[in-house]
């Protein structure tokens, strides 16, 4: 369990965050364990007595009742977010470089024109992470059937970013950093 990096604080309101480095050899087992350590840290910060997060049959993490959460990891860092009482939470940490071709694939023309730098305030990596975080949160709702994360539409109003799909929507917060983009979606 490690302290939350200052750069990730206050990414979204009313949430608790935990992080944990992924130790060598940085493989799937180490990433999974780091994710659970990060989740335990986030649950502790949120005031949960229960701090274990088993894995559901479909692979999703099962957070304690009342402490809705989400986990994401790279091969070096795991991060977890808990938002007590939230209907759904999604978090994503994205370290990869997103090529212009990939950006064109995952972003609609309107998203590229209004959100993507230089016209908009976000990098392609930020928006990739935003769609992934929103996908995790919206997938938790269980009402949208199967869909793909890039089929979510992003829009911005008054400085706030919203993700929408199938008549449902969720606000998304983005925290860009030099070596990764962090995004969290919380629906209350």
């Amino acid at each position: 369990m490690t302290a939350e990096p200052a750069v990730l604080r206050n990414a979204a309101p009313e949430m608790s965050m935990g992080t944990s480095p992924v130790p060598p050899p940085h493989g799937p087992a180490e990433q999974f364990a780091a994710g659970r350590r990060a989740a335990a840290a986030a649950l502790a910060a949120a005031g949960s007595i229960e701090r274990t997060v088993p894995r559901a049959r479909d692979g999703r993490p099962l957070f304690p009742r009342g402490f809705t959460g989400s986990i994401s990891h790279t091969d070096r860092l795991a991060v977890a977010v808990v938002a007590p009482g939230a209907e759904a939470v999604g978090v994503d940490i994205e370290p990869a470089t997103i090529t212009s071709r990939t950006a064109a694939f995952i972003l609609r023309e309107r998203e590229r024109r209004l959100l993507l730098a230089p016209a908009g305030p976000y990098t392609a990596r930020d928006l990739f992470a935003a769609k992934e975080a929103a996908f995790k949160a919206m997938n938790c709702l269980g009402t949208l059937g199967e869909f793909l994360f890039w089929q979510i539409r992003l829009s911005r109003s008054g400085g706030a970013l919203t993700a929408a799909y199938g008549g449902e929507s969720v606000p998304v917060w983005i925290r860009p950093e030099a070596d990764h983009s962090f995004a969290v979606a919380i629906r209350r």
Binding site: T102, F128, F149
Partner: peptide
């Protein structure tokens, strides 16, 4: 489930 991340999946589709 095999561990292919989203970025790699999209790169594959492209």
């Amino acid at each position: 489930e095999a561990g292919v991340p989203s970025t790699a999946l999209v790169a594959l589709l492209v």
